[in-house]
Design a protein around this nucleic acid. Sequence first.
DNA 1: TTTGTTAATGCAACAAAGTTGCGTTATATT
DNA 2: AATATAACGCAACTTTGTTGCATTAACAAA
Lengths: 126, 126
Amino acid sequence: MGVIRKTKAVEVLLNEFSTGSVAISAKALIEQLGEMFNKTTIYRVLDKLEDDGVLHSFLGKDGLKWYAKCNGCTSKEHKDVHPHFQCLQCGKVDCLPVHVSLPEIPNRKIEISQLLIQGKCEACFV
Amino acid sequence: MGVIRKTKAVEVLLNEFSTGSVAISAKALIEQLGEMFNKTTIYRVLDKLEDDGVLHSFLGKDGLKWYAKCNGCTSKEHKDVHPHFQCLQCGKVDCLPVHVSLPEIPNRKIEISQLLIQGKCEACFV
DNA sequence: TTTGTTAATGCAACAAAGTTGCGTTATATT
DNA sequence: AATATAACGCAACTTTGTTGCATTAACAAA
């Protein structure tokens, strides 16, 4: 991806992801920032930040697109692979900093994998 | 779920899943059967078959809904948990009859998990 | 500081997947 | 055969996300 300009939208969006490993859906960002920026802009900035290795995206349980900060990724390589956890009670989604060993699958080449775990998060877990 | 009547649509749709562990997307079914049945009917029959434990559904890489036959499930319990494999070359999706051990996650309760593996299937793998 | 290039933006219109309401049809029970 | 109601078709709608294009604003160079 080409040069990225430090526009207001980039600044504000990046700031949304400044805290830790919590993921935010594009939908939520539009609800939250949609009066400040057009939704097209929000989608495009997220796209670009993902291409640049700043964010990574994945699909939540309803097929909504979620974004979270990347760790150690570049525009050439997304090496930040991990499962995501979506709380069925409060809806919160975050990145799990653990490694998952995939099963052996003969005669197939694994290129990408995504694991979404659903249940109750720390806060909702009694 | 209530009684299910053996209508033409149910019969034809069930027949589509008669062969093995291949998954079919709702979109593909509509493209294929959309002249015979209204898409609403197709969505509703798939829904019902899933509720009855005959089919299970999951989301593919683009957020499309895919369906495949269940093994040993009832309307009360979906016990047929396994990863799915989507070929990035030919697009085929199928169920992997393997068990995946999830990581330990303290203070959370895992209720559902879905693992989508992408890569090259047996046919596309050279 | 001004100028010029072009990335980034806003807007409106669109696209695709799936859902809803409702009047009609057909399955299966009596 | 009559009846109750599940299933259906149709049209209109919803939601998430995308595209085209004219306008604006970063930022580098003069």
